[in-house]
Amino acid sequence: MERIILGDNQFFAVNHLSDEKSRAQAMRFRTTNAIIEVLDIAYDLGIGTFMCTTHDRIAEVCEHIRSQPSRYQNFKIYPCMPYAHKYANAVTEYGVIEALKRFMPGKMLETAAKGGFALIRKDFMEMMKLLVDAEMKMFTGIKTEVIFLQNIITDLILGLGMYDFFVGFAKHIKAKYGAEPGFITMNMPFLLDVLEKQGILNPIICASINKIGFRMSGGKESYEKTIMERKFRPMAMQVLAAGALAPEEAMEYVCKQKKIESIVFGASTRNHIKQTKELIEQMSSRFGL
């Protein structure tokens, strides 16, 4: 994994600190071109990995990336699935079964039959694979070396205790996409315990890791201990705690924990992206990385 990764919350009006800011973001990024402009800035500054939700508009970004293969030769996407609001809204509108039918790909006769059959037989593992494939469709032809399960789903499976889905997801991602499975969570120590018990060793886990303990369930100390003592590949998100921390102290906190492999951050302007990248590099080298 690359050390510095660009996230996508800023493009989709996700701001954990302010509803007002998220409205301003929605206005700024109403066109896909506005998103691509920011991706281009990051790419030209040497940030080649974009971590994003499987939002409908990402399909348009992928279209653009595919149309210029030489320009985006080293461009990678780490998809995070699913875009939960899409499913939640459909469940509200149509109910669970009807919503599932709508999202299982129906264009190819073969998949439709497979999906329908899985529904009737209540083969949930098969359904999960079909849903993953439906989400992955938009990334055809794009390098996706790590494929993440979004935190709402990771943590739901974790809470419900349906751990075999982690195994099923990991196997499917490896077998079908030749990629590494990744897990986003707000409950990192708990998740790592479970993944290890399920035989998923040295997993890639993306979690909130920040100096004020924001969204670090189980507590900051337990996170620090887990990172220090356990074998897994941590990726830090929400390092600025949604903006509550000054960049310097935020990055210092993350970079001094040397086992953290990657840092994902969101930014919308050249200056901001450049400064963040330089700050991470500077802090990393200060701690001998």
Binding site: H16, S18, G159, M186, G213, F214, R215, S217, G219, A242
Partner: peptide, 15 residues
Amino acid sequence: RYITDLTDSVDFYLR
């Protein structure tokens, strides 16, 4: 006053 300054963390976070 921001939510990040006011919220206590929970044992298990879902949504």
